[in-house]
């Protein structure tokens, strides 16, 4: 592991511990605790969507659909002790196993949706995933076992802040590692020029599917968390609008930037909570934001850069006058 990775990890750990201690000391009440947990869930969802839309350059509109799969499957497993997972595994361990099964199921569905569409030009994925999300909703509405339209109730509140924070950290760690690896570079190459990537020996369909399935898996995990946070889920919790909310997080943070997605997830979850009473006005504002960002600042607020502790240090140094630009940054002059 690189030094910078370790610094980032320590930083993240410190925040987690600090927040946990604040909760224990009673500075954070139940409502804010709930919101913090929700933020972590949306971080998982946004960072995974960024993998498809930002890194791979494909356009998925079905994230809510994958979340629905993960949510319902995980809830079924925690609500029915003895179902496939042995009864001996109960409580939190059961929750984690159920989450993973939900994630795997979402990944499998992602594979089925992605296989026929990802061979083709990007626009088809958008419409297929949009249709897929709607179909999942229709199927759930008609599935009596999970309550149909009236919802699936009595799910135990396993998703507390600490466990979800850890899950979010693991998710970001894995996805960011993937992005910076050679496999991630292959995905970025597809985004930049599919034909050139293909002639460099990158099987573009294969890598698009890998990224898509990986993202679907984590969306499933996010869905499972949602179910065990809200304790009741219904098909309309996973409407198209949820996919758009997550899409806006990715776009606002800058397509391709994991740290941007994280910050946008935090910001937008807070805004959504404070505007809860003005549902349609909120959506109008969000959709206008989406349009304006695309037209006026398509690189998002962070401009596709990654924010890290070392970069912050660099910025602070600049602020205090000891200007020492990073190597290779201002290399337009002084070459050759």
């Amino acid at each position: 592991m690189k030094k910078s990775t370790i610094i980032n990890l320590i930083f993240v750990l410190a925040i987690g511990i600090a927040l946990h201690l604040l909760r224990k000391a009673g500075f954070i009440n139940g409502y804010y605790d709930h919101i913090l947990t929700k933020i972590c869930m949306f971080i998982i969802a946004a960072v995974s969507l960024n993998l498809i839309n930002g890194i791979c350059g494909q356009f998925s509109l079905g994230h809510a659909g994958f979340m629905a799969v993960g949510a319902y499957i995980a809830a079924i497993f925690t609500k029915n002790p003895g179902l496939i997972i042995p009864e001996a595994i109960a409580g939190m361990p059961r929750f984690f196993v159920a989450l993973i099964i939900g994630g795997l199921m979402a990944a499998f569905v992602g594979f089925l949706v992605g296989l026929p569409t990802l061979r083709l030009r990007g626009d088809y994925l958008a419409i297929t995933t949009l249709g897929f999300g709607e179909i999942i909703r229709v199927l759930l509405l008609n599935w009596k076992f999970v309550g149909g339209a009236s919802g699936y109730f009595g799910i135990k509140p396993y998703a507390n802040f600490l466990s979800v924070y850890v899950l979010a950290v693991i998710t970001v760690f894995i996805i960011q590692n993937f992005i910076t690896s050679s496999y991630g570079r292959a995905c970025i190459a597809i985004r930049e020029d599919e034909m050139a990537a293909e002639t460099m020996g990158i099987h573009t369909t294969k890598y698009k599917i890998i990224a898509f399935v990986l993202a679907a898996f984590f969306a499933g995990i996010a869905g499972g968390i949602y179910a065990h946070l809200m304790q009741a889920i219904m098909p309309r919790d996973f409407s198209f609008l949820v996919s758009v909310d997550i899409l806006l997080m990715v776009v606002l943070g800058g397509l391709g930037s994991t740290s941007g997605s994280i910050m946008a997830a935090i910001f937008l979850t807070l805004v959504t909570e404070s505007l809860r009473r003005f549902q349609s006005l909120r959506v109008i504002i969000y959709s206008l934001m989406l349009i304006f960002i695309m037209i006026f600042r398509p690189q998002g607020l962070l401009g596709g850069q990654e924010l890290s502790v070392s970069m912050l240090k660099e910025k602070i140094k600049l602020l205090f006058g000891r200007i020492k630009p990073e190597k290779g940054y201002a290399s337009t002059n002084g070459t050759e």
Binding site: A189, A196, M200
Partner: peptide
């Protein structure tokens, strides 16, 4: 790959020779 660095352009072409697996990544 216009938006990427000169180095990344070449590194991407090496991808087909990478031996570590997905899990390692």
């Amino acid at each position: 790959f216009k938006e990427l660095s000169v180095l990344d352009n070449v590194k991407i072409a090496y991808h087909q020779h990478v031996k570590y697996g997905l899990a390692t990544s």
